[in-house]
Design a protein around this nucleic acid. Structure first.
Lengths: 164, 164
DNA sequence: TGCAATTTCTTTAAACTTCAAGCAATTGGC
DNA sequence: GCCAATTGCTTGAAGTTTAAAGAAATTGCA
C-alpha cells in the first residue's frame, strides 16, 4: 500500500487498472444480457435484436421518424439503418413515405402489423429484463442508474474532448 | 401514486419499467464507450475492435489457447473466431499449431510481431479507458464494480433457469 | 472392441455493421 | 439568383456476427 504525506492511500500516477477492469466488467455484463435477449427473441418470436431495437424506437412515436433520427437514437451508422429499414419494409412491418417539404427525407413508421407484433414482443421482453435483473433490489437499481448516468456523462465528455 | 397499508409507495405488481430503463441505460453506456474505443483503435492503430479483443485474450497467456477457449472467453460463436484467427494469421499477428495429442485442437499464439503491436495498443487503450471513466471517483468505481457483479450473477441465474 | 455421443473446428448463408464515397436536395451566405 | 457547404440518404467493399449443418477426431461405455 502506498501512502501520501497525509497518510491517505493513493494510486500510482498511471495505474489505470481499476478503470480497465470496470470497463471489462461492464462489457461482459452487457454482452451476456444482450446474448440472452437475442436468443429469446429468436426463439420465441423469430426476430433479430436489431429489428426489435429499430421497432422499439418507432413504437415511441406515432407519426414516424426519419432515417437520421433512427441512426442517431440507435447509435449506429446511416447505412446500417438503410438496410434494416429496407428489410422491415419488405416484411410488411414498416412503412416509408417521402417528406413533402424536403425530398431527401423519408418518414418511417410502423405499420399496423408492425406495431401489433412489436407490442406483443415488447411485453414479453420487459418481463425477461425484469427477471434478468431480478436479484437486484430497488436500491441497487437506483444506484446503478445513478452511476451509469455518471459514467455516460464522463464518456461523453471524453469523446467530445477528443473530437474537438 | 399508490400507497400500501403502511403508507409507503409501492410498485404495481408487474411494473417492470425500472429494470427496463436500467437495461437501456446499461446498453447505451456500453455502446457509447465501445464506439469511442472502436474509433480510436481505427484512427490510431488502424485495427478493428474484434481483432484487438482477440489479441487481448491471447496476451494474457504465454503458451497459447485453443479456438474454443477463445470463443468462450470472447462470448462469440466458434465460426466467428475461425474467421478472425484466419485473418490475423494472414497478417502475421498470430501463429497456429495443431495439438500433438488431439488433432482436432489448434493452439493459437501471438507472434512476436503480434505481441509487440498489441502491447503498444494496449498501453494507449488503458489510458483511453482511464480518461473515459475519469469523472468517476474511486468509490464510484468500487460501487459500480460491485453492482455490475451482482447484475452479472443475476443474469447468469436467469439464463441458466431458462435453458434448464 | 465397437460405436454412439461428444468435442473441436470449419463452412455456409444470411444478416448486420462500419466506413468511405457519392448522389440529390436544401440551406446559407453573398 | 448563385454557388459552396451542409444534410439526408444510398451504395459498395470489407469485415464481423450468428445460427445451423457438417467433417474430423476423440471419448466413454456397453
Amino acid at each position: 500500500m502506498i501512502l501520501d504525506s497525509e497518510t491517505k492511500a493513493v494510486e500510482l500516477p498511471d495505474d489505470h487498472g481499476t478503470e480497465l477492469r470496470l470497463w471489462l466488467r461492464l462489457l461482459t455484463c452487457t454482452t451476456l444480457i444482450e446474448g440472452e435477449v437475442r436468443s429469446r427473441l429468436r426463439e420465441k418470436f423469430d426476430v433479430t435484436l436489431p429489428r426489435f431495437d429499430l421497432m422499439a424506437q418507432l413504437d415511441k412515436v406515432s407519426d414516424g421518424m426519419t432515417l437520421s433520427d433512427l441512426s442517431k437514437r440507435m447509435m449506429v451508422s446511416n447505412g446500417n439503418v438503410t438496410g434494416l429499414v429496407e428489410r422491415l419494409v419488405e416484411s410488411g412491418h414498416l412503412d416509408r413515405r417521402t417528406s413533402e417539404t424536403d425530398r431527401r427525407v423519408q418518414f418511417i413508421r410502423l405499420t399496423k402489423l408492425g406495431r401489433a407484433e412489436f407490442r406483443k414482443m415488447a411485453a414479453e421482453h420487459e418481463k425477461w429484463i425484469a427477471d434478468i435483473f431480478g436479484d437486484l433490489s430497488p436500491k441497487d437499481i437506483r444506484e446503478l442508474m445513478r452511476l451509469l448516468a455518471k459514467a455516460k456523462g464522463s464518456a461523453q465528455r471524453s469523446a467530445k474532448a477528443r473530437s474537438a
